[in-house]
Amino acid sequence: MRFLTTRRTITLRFTVYESTLFMTEQHFDLAALRREYLRGGLRRADLTADPLDLFTRWFTQACDARLADPNAMCVATVDAQGQPWQRIVLLKQVDSRGMVFFTNLGSRKATHLALNSRVSLHFPWHMLERQVMVLGRAERLSVAEVMTYFHTRPRDSQIGAWVSRQSSRISARGVLEGKFIEMKQKFLNGDVPLPSFWGGYRVKIDTIEFWQGGEHRLHDRFSYQRTEAGWDIDRLAP
Protein backbone atom coordinates (compact mmCIF):
# COMPACT_ATOMS: atom_id res chain seq x y z
CA MET A 1 0.00 0.00 0.00
CA ARG A 2 1.30 3.48 -0.87
CA PHE A 3 0.20 6.71 0.77
CA LEU A 4 0.35 9.79 -1.41
CA THR A 5 -0.13 13.04 0.48
CA THR A 6 -0.87 16.58 -0.57
CA ARG A 7 -1.84 19.63 1.43
CA ARG A 8 -5.57 18.83 1.27
CA THR A 9 -6.04 15.20 0.31
CA ILE A 10 -4.83 11.71 1.05
CA THR A 11 -4.95 9.28 -1.85
CA LEU A 12 -4.79 5.54 -1.18
CA ARG A 13 -3.70 3.15 -3.94
CA PHE A 14 -3.66 -0.57 -3.29
CA THR A 15 -4.11 -3.86 -5.07
CA VAL A 16 -5.27 -7.16 -3.58
CA TYR A 17 -3.43 -9.77 -5.64
CA GLU A 18 -5.06 -12.79 -3.96
CA SER A 19 -8.47 -11.95 -5.41
CA THR A 20 -10.02 -10.11 -8.31
CA LEU A 21 -10.55 -6.97 -6.23
CA PHE A 22 -8.69 -3.94 -7.54
CA MET A 23 -9.19 -0.46 -6.11
CA THR A 24 -7.52 2.80 -7.09
CA GLU A 25 -7.43 6.36 -5.88
CA GLN A 26 -10.00 6.80 -3.15
CA HIS A 27 -9.93 10.47 -2.21
CA PHE A 28 -10.50 11.82 1.30
CA ASP A 29 -10.58 15.56 1.75
CA LEU A 30 -9.45 15.83 5.35
CA ALA A 31 -9.98 19.57 5.50
CA ALA A 32 -13.65 19.10 4.65
CA LEU A 33 -14.35 16.56 7.40
CA ARG A 34 -16.34 18.44 10.03
CA ARG A 35 -19.68 18.52 11.81
CA GLU A 36 -21.54 20.75 14.21
CA TYR A 37 -21.83 19.85 17.87
CA LEU A 38 -25.47 20.27 18.81
CA ARG A 39 -26.18 17.92 21.70
CA GLY A 40 -26.19 20.62 24.36
CA GLY A 41 -23.95 22.83 26.43
CA LEU A 42 -22.29 22.78 29.81
CA ARG A 43 -22.98 25.72 32.11
CA ARG A 44 -21.60 26.59 35.51
CA ALA A 45 -24.99 25.73 37.01
CA ASP A 46 -24.48 22.16 35.76
CA LEU A 47 -21.23 21.72 37.68
CA THR A 48 -20.78 19.92 40.98
CA ALA A 49 -18.54 21.00 43.84
CA ASP A 50 -16.59 17.75 43.54
CA PRO A 51 -15.52 16.95 39.96
CA LEU A 52 -15.85 13.21 40.56
CA ASP A 53 -19.59 13.69 41.05
CA LEU A 54 -19.80 15.23 37.58
CA PHE A 55 -17.51 12.54 36.18
CA THR A 56 -19.75 9.85 37.65
CA ARG A 57 -22.82 11.50 36.11
CA TRP A 58 -21.19 11.69 32.69
CA PHE A 59 -19.85 8.15 32.94
CA THR A 60 -23.30 6.84 33.85
CA GLN A 61 -24.77 8.66 30.86
CA ALA A 62 -22.08 7.16 28.62
CA CYS A 63 -23.05 3.70 29.86
CA ASP A 64 -26.76 4.43 29.43
CA ALA A 65 -26.05 5.56 25.86
CA ARG A 66 -24.44 2.15 25.25
CA LEU A 67 -21.17 3.62 24.08
CA ALA A 68 -18.57 1.01 23.23
CA ASP A 69 -16.05 0.71 26.07
CA PRO A 70 -17.14 3.79 28.04
CA ASN A 71 -14.33 3.12 30.53
CA ALA A 72 -11.66 3.20 27.81
CA MET A 73 -9.17 6.00 28.41
CA CYS A 74 -6.02 7.12 26.70
CA VAL A 75 -3.10 6.98 29.15
CA ALA A 76 -0.16 9.24 28.28
CA THR A 77 3.27 8.83 29.85
CA VAL A 78 6.73 10.26 29.09
CA ASP A 79 9.93 8.25 28.66
CA ALA A 80 13.43 9.11 29.85
CA GLN A 81 14.11 11.10 26.66
CA GLY A 82 10.99 13.23 27.13
CA GLN A 83 9.08 11.42 24.37
CA PRO A 84 5.34 11.15 25.12
CA TRP A 85 3.61 7.79 24.56
CA GLN A 86 -0.12 7.01 24.52
CA ARG A 87 -2.24 3.86 24.68
CA ILE A 88 -5.81 2.87 25.50
CA VAL A 89 -6.34 1.32 28.95
CA LEU A 90 -9.54 0.47 30.81
CA LEU A 91 -10.53 2.39 33.93
CA LYS A 92 -11.36 -0.17 36.62
CA GLN A 93 -12.12 1.92 39.69
CA VAL A 94 -12.75 5.55 40.57
CA ASP A 95 -13.33 7.13 43.97
CA SER A 96 -12.11 10.06 46.06
CA ARG A 97 -8.60 8.57 46.07
CA GLY A 98 -8.27 8.61 42.29
CA MET A 99 -8.65 6.52 39.11
CA VAL A 100 -7.31 2.96 38.89
CA PHE A 101 -5.99 0.85 36.02
CA PHE A 102 -4.02 -2.41 35.86
CA THR A 103 -1.09 -3.49 33.72
CA ASN A 104 2.01 -5.64 33.39
CA LEU A 105 4.69 -4.07 35.60
CA GLY A 106 7.29 -4.73 32.92
CA SER A 107 5.32 -2.81 30.30
CA ARG A 108 6.51 0.36 28.64
CA LYS A 109 4.03 2.49 30.60
CA ALA A 110 5.18 0.98 33.91
CA THR A 111 8.81 1.66 33.00
CA HIS A 112 7.93 5.29 32.25
CA LEU A 113 5.98 5.70 35.50
CA ALA A 114 8.91 4.38 37.52
CA LEU A 115 10.93 7.34 36.24
CA ASN A 116 8.18 9.96 36.04
CA SER A 117 4.90 9.41 37.85
CA ARG A 118 3.13 12.26 36.06
CA VAL A 119 0.37 10.97 33.83
CA SER A 120 -2.49 12.24 31.68
CA LEU A 121 -5.77 10.41 31.12
CA HIS A 122 -8.31 11.17 28.41
CA PHE A 123 -11.87 9.87 27.95
CA PRO A 124 -13.12 10.46 24.36
CA TRP A 125 -16.91 10.11 24.49
CA HIS A 126 -17.41 11.25 20.89
CA MET A 127 -21.03 10.18 20.50
CA LEU A 128 -22.01 12.41 23.42
CA GLU A 129 -19.74 15.18 22.13
CA ARG A 130 -17.82 15.08 25.39
CA GLN A 131 -14.26 14.68 26.57
CA VAL A 132 -12.74 14.44 30.03
CA MET A 133 -9.03 15.05 30.60
CA VAL A 134 -7.19 14.23 33.85
CA LEU A 135 -3.74 15.25 35.05
CA GLY A 136 -2.20 13.63 38.08
CA ARG A 137 0.41 11.31 39.55
CA ALA A 138 0.31 7.52 39.39
CA GLU A 139 1.03 5.46 42.49
CA ARG A 140 1.46 1.67 42.62
CA LEU A 141 -1.37 -0.25 44.24
CA SER A 142 -0.72 -2.62 47.12
CA VAL A 143 -0.47 -6.35 46.41
CA ALA A 144 -3.70 -6.86 48.38
CA GLU A 145 -5.59 -4.40 46.16
CA VAL A 146 -4.21 -6.00 43.00
CA MET A 147 -5.02 -9.51 44.17
CA THR A 148 -8.60 -8.54 45.03
CA TYR A 149 -9.17 -7.28 41.50
CA PHE A 150 -7.17 -10.03 39.77
CA HIS A 151 -9.47 -12.75 41.08
CA THR A 152 -12.56 -10.95 39.75
CA ARG A 153 -11.24 -11.27 36.18
CA PRO A 154 -12.42 -14.09 33.90
CA ARG A 155 -10.18 -17.14 34.31
CA ASP A 156 -8.80 -16.90 30.77
CA SER A 157 -7.89 -13.25 31.41
CA GLN A 158 -6.03 -14.31 34.54
CA ILE A 159 -4.11 -16.88 32.51
CA GLY A 160 -3.50 -14.28 29.81
CA ALA A 161 -1.70 -12.11 32.35
CA TRP A 162 0.92 -14.88 32.67
CA VAL A 163 1.45 -15.15 28.93
CA SER A 164 2.61 -11.76 27.70
CA ARG A 165 5.78 -9.86 28.51
CA GLN A 166 4.01 -6.68 27.55
CA SER A 167 5.80 -4.38 25.06
CA SER A 168 8.52 -6.97 24.35
CA ARG A 169 9.17 -8.08 20.77
CA ILE A 170 7.78 -11.43 19.61
CA SER A 171 8.28 -13.29 16.34
CA ALA A 172 4.64 -14.25 15.71
CA ARG A 173 1.20 -14.43 17.31
CA GLY A 174 1.65 -18.20 17.53
CA VAL A 175 4.18 -17.61 20.32
CA LEU A 176 1.45 -16.07 22.47
CA GLU A 177 -1.12 -18.71 21.57
CA GLY A 178 1.29 -21.53 22.35
CA LYS A 179 2.21 -19.98 25.70
CA PHE A 180 -1.47 -19.52 26.54
CA ILE A 181 -2.17 -23.22 25.93
CA GLU A 182 0.85 -24.12 28.04
CA MET A 183 -0.21 -21.93 30.97
CA LYS A 184 -3.83 -23.05 30.72
CA GLN A 185 -2.65 -26.62 31.14
CA LYS A 186 -0.36 -25.64 34.01
CA PHE A 187 -3.23 -24.01 35.92
CA LEU A 188 -5.79 -26.64 34.95
CA ASN A 189 -6.65 -27.35 38.56
CA GLY A 190 -7.08 -24.76 41.28
CA ASP A 191 -6.89 -20.98 41.27
CA VAL A 192 -4.66 -18.99 38.95
CA PRO A 193 -2.03 -17.28 41.13
CA LEU A 194 -1.30 -13.58 40.84
CA PRO A 195 1.84 -13.00 38.73
CA SER A 196 4.49 -11.02 40.57
CA PHE A 197 4.91 -8.86 37.45
CA TRP A 198 1.25 -7.81 37.22
CA GLY A 199 -0.09 -4.85 39.16
CA GLY A 200 -2.01 -1.62 39.10
CA TYR A 201 -1.83 2.15 39.55
CA ARG A 202 -4.01 4.77 41.13
CA VAL A 203 -3.86 8.18 39.49
CA LYS A 204 -4.26 10.87 42.15
CA ILE A 205 -6.05 13.73 40.39
CA ASP A 206 -4.56 17.23 40.37
CA THR A 207 -6.59 18.62 37.46
CA ILE A 208 -9.69 17.41 35.68
CA GLU A 209 -11.22 19.15 32.68
CA PHE A 210 -14.70 18.64 31.20
CA TRP A 211 -15.33 19.46 27.51
CA GLN A 212 -18.76 19.63 25.91
CA GLY A 213 -19.04 20.33 22.19
CA GLY A 214 -20.84 23.54 21.23
CA GLU A 215 -22.37 25.03 18.11
CA HIS A 216 -20.06 27.15 15.87
CA ARG A 217 -17.07 25.62 17.70
CA LEU A 218 -17.97 27.58 20.84
CA HIS A 219 -17.31 24.57 23.04
CA ASP A 220 -17.75 24.59 26.81
CA ARG A 221 -14.68 23.77 28.90
CA PHE A 222 -14.40 23.79 32.68
CA SER A 223 -11.22 22.97 34.57
CA TYR A 224 -11.11 21.81 38.21
CA GLN A 225 -7.78 22.43 39.93
CA ARG A 226 -7.11 20.77 43.30
CA THR A 227 -6.17 23.10 46.15
CA GLU A 228 -5.69 22.63 49.89
CA ALA A 229 -9.21 23.99 50.42
CA GLY A 230 -10.87 21.84 47.75
CA TRP A 231 -11.27 22.62 44.05
CA ASP A 232 -10.91 25.83 42.04
CA ILE A 233 -13.11 25.92 38.95
CA ASP A 234 -12.38 27.96 35.83
CA ARG A 235 -14.15 28.25 32.51
CA LEU A 236 -11.66 27.97 29.65
CA ALA A 237 -11.94 29.43 26.18
CA PRO A 238 -12.57 26.75 23.56
Rank of each mutant, 00 (worst) to 15 (best):
I205W: 07
M127H: 14
A31K: 12
L38F: 00
D64Q: 13
R35F: 06
T152F: 01
R137F: 08
F22I: 08
L105Y: 07
R165S: 10
F101S: 01
P238V: 00
T11P: 00
R137H: 15
K92E: 04
G214Y: 02
W85V: 01
L194Y: 03
Y149N: 10
A114T: 05
C63E: 13
Q81E: 15
T60H: 13
Q212E: 09
D232G: 02
R8K: 13
R7H: 11
W231N: 09
W85P: 00
K92W: 05
E18R: 09
A68S: 12
A237H: 12
T111R: 15
E129F: 00
V134K: 03
F55R: 05
R8E: 14
E228M: 06
T60K: 13
E25Y: 06
R137C: 11
F101T: 03
G213K: 05
V146F: 00
D156S: 12
Q225E: 12
R217W: 07
W198Y: 10
A76V: 14
R140D: 02
A161D: 05
H122S: 14
F101Y: 11
S157H: 07
L90H: 09
V119E: 03
P84Q: 07
G82N: 06
D69L: 11
R8L: 09
Q185M: 08
A80L: 06
F3A: 10
A114I: 00
W58K: 05
D156G: 01
W58P: 01
